[in-house]
Each structure stands twice: as structure tokens, then as C-alpha cells.
């Protein structure tokens, strides 16, 4: 890799977006690259939209990805893929969890509503998102918390980093008892498409 790779990870407060971006950043540094991760927390942790910018390559200056410059957009929730789609360009990849989390404001707002099908909404505007059924797979595996690892598995397919680095990094971050399950979740995510 000679150029800088930009991965924007988005979702809703409490979904584990920050942890996932930490893991990705660690993976990149273990692969010998310079890496920066940036997000703002504070008021955002109370159920708000969360985004985390991860950039890695031989030398990274800016901690932020510019609008239109994300190589990969990884969305933990479908509406969040819509919200951040403009960070991508025609060569980018959008990976989105097939999950709808409807904000409280939806029942009170008179204008915009939660779209019936966020994926169709994206297509209409010229974006294509690959649908990752992460929550469904996680339920099949018996633990909804695995959605995080499944999404990282899906992301890993699009990055040129050895699988072992991913697995080692994830294993160091999850409870010992769930290591095997997380390995499986990662593989299921990798094969999800």
C-alpha cells in the first residue's frame, strides 16, 4: 500500500463503532503502517449518530477523511449509511448492516421520516451499498454482540491485511470465553457477501 486508505465507520451511540475503529487502527499499525483515528464523543454518546474516521498508510497527516474521499464506508445501521454516503465516491465501497434503528424523533418530526428501505434510498441517489446481515448472523450464532466482529470480518475482505493480524487483534479485545465464537463471527462476516 503506497497511498493512504480511508475507512469511515458510522453507527449509533452504543453500537460499538468506536471499538471497531480502534481495532482497525490497531490492525493497521500492527501491519507496520502509520495510522490515525478520529472521532468526537461527548454529547454524541447519548443515542446520537456516531462516526469514526480511520486513515492508514505509509504517512498520514490529516486525522479526518475529507467529504468524498472515503475508500470504504462501513455502516453499523442502515440509515447511517444514507447519512454518510456523500463521504464516498464512485470508486468507494459501502458496506452496511441490514439493521434499522428508528430514532425517537421519527415519531415527532413532521418533515423527514425513516425510509422504508434505506438501501433503495441509496440506489435512487446513485450509491450502492452491500447489505451485511450482521445482526441476523449474530443471532444465529447466539449472541447479538457479535455483530461488531461480523462487520469487521466483512470489512477485512476489502483491505489488504493478513487475516491473522485481524484475528489476533480481535482476540486481545474480547472476553476469553468468546474467542472461538468471535473467530467464527469474523469468518462469517468475511464470507457474508
Amino acid at each position: 500500500m503506497t497511498k493512504v486508505t480511508n475507512v469511515l465507520i458510522v453507527g449509533v451511540g452504543g453500537q460499538g463503532v468506536i471499538l471497531a475503529s480502534e481495532i482497525l487502527t490497531e490492525v493497521a499499525t500492527k501491519f507496520g503502517m502509520d495510522a490515525k483515528k478520529s472521532e468526537v464523543h461527548g454529547m454524541a454518546q447519548r443515542g446520537g449518530a456516531v462516526s469514526s474516521h480511520v486513515r492508514f498508510g505509509p504517512k498520514v497527516f490529516s486525522p479526518l477523511i475529507a467529504v468524498g474521499d472515503a475508500d470504504i464506508l462501513l455502516a453499523f445501521e442502515a440509515l447511517e449509511a444514507v447519512r454518510w454516503a456523500h463521504y464516498t465516491n464512485k470508486d468507494s465501497k459501502i458496506l452496511a448492516n441490514d439493521l434499522r434503528l428508528i430514532p425517537t424523533t421519527a415519531f415527532l418530526s413532521k418533515g423527514t421520516t425513516y425510509p422504508d428501505d434505506p438501501f433503495a434510498e441509496l440506489e435512487k441517489s446513485g450509491y450502492h451499498a452491500d447489505k451485511i446481515p450482521a445482526d441476523q448472523i449474530a443471532k444465529d450464532l447466539g449472541n447479538v454482540r457479535l455483530a461488531n466482529t461480523i462487520l469487521l470480518g466483512a470489512l477485512s475482505k476489502h483491505l489488504d491485511v493478513p487475516e491473522e493480524i485481524w484475528l489476533k487483534t480481535i482476540e486481545a479485545r474480547v472476553p476469553k470465553k468468546t474467542i472461538e465464537l468471535n473467530r467464527e463471527a469474523f469468518q462469517r462476516g468475511r464470507g457474508a457477501l
Binding site: 449509533v12 451511540g13 454529547m43 454524541a44 454518546q45 447519548r46 443515542g47 446520537g48 449518530a49 475529507a66 467529504v67 468524498g68 474521499d69 440509515l79 447511517e80 444514507v82 447519512r83 454518510w84 454516503a85 456523500h86 465516491n89 430514532p103 425517537t104 424523533t105 421519527a106 418530526s109 423527514t112 421520516t113 425513516y114 434510498e121 441509496l122 441517489s125
Partner: peptide
């Protein structure tokens, strides 16, 4: 870098809540 002119798609806001 040339900023893209694509405006964000309309998306229901998700403000922080109690």
C-alpha cells in the same frame, strides 16, 4: 483535493437524547 459537490442525502436526524 477538490471537494465534491454532492450534498448529503436527507436523513432523519438522530440527536442525543436523555
Amino acid at each position: 483535493f477538490h471537494p465534491v459537490k454532492t450534498p448529503p442525502l436527507p436523513a432523519l436526524s438522530r440527536p442525543p437524547v436523555l
